Amino acid sequence: MTELISLKEVKAHCRIDDDYEDEDDLLRDYIAASLEVCQKHIGKRFGDDLAFNPALKVGCLMYICMLYENREMVAALTIKEVPLTISHLWSVYRDPGVY
């Protein structure tokens, strides 16, 4: 399978300098996790009747950024859900048989 989300795209979305490479392995893990969670949420695999389109990509980028910025189990700040959430982007493509 071709690379669906590049490290460069993730760094741009998370506003991380290209030169900063200390967390590249972590970001690659976040990319893999976001793609897996997206497919599990929808109930389909990419390529099996599911094209990786811009809405899914934006949702994955948002998910990666959320993981990157909120690495701890506890936050000092109150986090509020933004109106256009990851779930809203992905749920449009969700298989009705997935709970």
Rank of each mutant, 00 (worst) to 15 (best):
M1G: 12
E3S: 04
L4P: 03
V10R: 00
V10S: 05
A12V: 14
A12Q: 15
H13I: 12
C14H: 12
D19F: 09
D19E: 08
E21M: 09
E21I: 13
E23M: 12
D25N: 08
L26Y: 11
R28F: 07
D29S: 11
D29R: 08
Y30Q: 12
Y30I: 03
Y30L: 12
I31T: 03
A32C: 03
C38P: 00
G43I: 02
K44P: 01
R45K: 05
G47T: 02
D48N: 02
D48A: 00
D48E: 03
F52K: 00
F52V: 04
N53Q: 06
N53M: 07
P54E: 02
P54D: 04
L56W: 04
K57W: 02
V58K: 04
C60W: 03
L61A: 03
M62R: 07
M62S: 01
I64M: 07
C65A: 15
C65R: 11
C65H: 13
E69H: 15
E69L: 15
A75T: 15
A76C: 06
T78R: 13
V82R: 11
P83F: 13
L84K: 09
T85M: 04
I86S: 08
S87P: 05
H88F: 06
H88G: 09
V92Q: 10
Y93C: 05
R94L: 06
V98P: 06
V98D: 04
Y99I: 09
